[in-house]
């Protein structure tokens, strides 16, 4: 397939970098140091989430890329997306899907830090076949170069995006009001980024949408859906409470898109850069839609157990920690008979 369009020029890249900065600052503004401590206090859910995010998701990406016989640069991008840490959008979706926001925040926090270690390992593990395909084609065309995953660059770009996160956390400490504004702005900017990228792609290279192979679309949409599906069933089979199932499902499927933009821009060269970026843009676009739909489904589906959970929390808040809510016999279905209560994340308490 012919895909030699350069997507972004110098000033676009600068703008994109600025937007990534704003988004990551917003993400940091929503976190506190206590969120990191909360991970240590409740390790079970986070551990299951960790396996789901860094075990399940990259494997799904690899499988999808292989089955669909994707062009190698797109395949590498898909695997890169598969091993990204979670973003703050997933926390919002977790909230609306009546999932555990506390767990979602903990998973985001843990995965953002763990990505530094896990991403290079996972990429090395799964991308071998695809990089050698690229190397082979490059040698055919006589350039004689070898394509390798720039591990060092990836780590340094990850470190780089963590700087605004840290700044955001400092901001939250210094001025909660400004931190909240930063958080809101970030959510809005995230949408603008995707729109901006789509629009520039459309205006400058209208044919791009047509020239993009169909398997790339399937991969971009499918990776998110597969993450939701397997994340949900994986945690459900492990006997996690419904509240956590929904959080883990969304956290697995929703990845931190802006981080992938940063990595691709800073670590890969043309023509692969544009191809990979295009994959990341498509993923970011479709994930907003698919996760909205999944959230609506979860919200409806989880209404009953959420109401019971909320009522328990409020009874304990108002009537004392020792108060036990006794529902009439037969009211609670079997799966909820065990106490569904859980600790609060510090960020949830505002």
């Amino acid at each position: 397939m012919e895909f030699n369009t350069q997507l972004l020029y110098g000033h676009d890249q600068a703008l994109l970098a600025l937007m990534i900065f704003v988004i990551m600052l917003g993400m940091g503004s929503s976190l506190t140091v206590d969120d990191f401590r909360a991970v240590a206090r409740k390790p079970r859910g986070v551990l299951i989430g960790f396996i789901s995010q860094f075990g399940l998701m990259p494997f799904l990406a690899f499988t999808l890329a292989t089955i669909l016989k994707m062009p190698p640069a797109f395949a590498i991008a898909l695997i890169l997306i598969g091993c990204l840490p979670g973003g703050t959008t997933s926390n919002m979706f977790a909230y609306f899907s009546r999932g555990s926001v506390a767990l979602s925040i903990s998973m985001t926090t843990a995965s953002t830090v763990m990505a530094l270690l896990m991403m290079p390992i996972i990429l090395k593990l799964y991308t071998g076949g695809f990089t050698s395909q690229i190397t082979a084609s490059m040698q055919d065309s006589g350039s004689g170069a070898e394509f390798v995953i720039p591990t060092g660059n990836i780590i340094s770009s990850l470190v780089l995006v963590l700087i605004p996160v840290a700044l955001g956390m400092i901001l939250r400490r210094k001025s909660p009001v400004w931190a909240k504004t930063a958080e809101d702005t970030a959510g809005f900017v995230a949408i603008l980024v995707i729109l901006y990228l789509l629009l520039t792609a459309f205006i400058r290279h209208g044919g791009l949408f047509v020239r993009t192979p169909v398997e790339v679309y399937i991969g971009a949409i499918g990776i998110g859906l597969a993450g939701f599906f397997f994340g949900y069933w994986f945690s459900r089979l492990l006997g996690v409470f419904p509240l956590f199932q929904r959080a883990i499902s969304l956290e697995t499927g929703i990845q931190n898109g802006p981080v992938s933009f940063a990595i691709i821009l800073l670590s890969f060269q043309e023509p692969f850069q544009s191809q990979m970026l295009w994959m990341a843009i498509l993923y970011s676009t479709f994930i907003v839609m698919t996760s909205s739909i999944i959230t609506l489904y979860f919200r409806k589906h989880g209404r009953f157990d959420w109401e019971i959970y909320r009522n328990t929390i409020i009874h304990n808040r108002l009537f004392g920690e020792k108060y036990v809510t006794e529902y009439p016999g037969g009211f609670l279905p079997g799966r909820l008979l065990r106490d569904p209560s859980q600790g609060h994340s510090p960020s949830q308490r505002r």
Partner: peptide, 20 residues
């Protein structure tokens, strides 16, 4: 008979202390 031990009414003592 049906709702038994569930709270029927709660009155406020303090902001976060209610008596069911």
């Amino acid at each position: 008979e049906k709702y038994g031990e569930l709270p029927a009414f709660a009155t406020r003592q303090k902001a976060s202390e209610w008596k069911p």
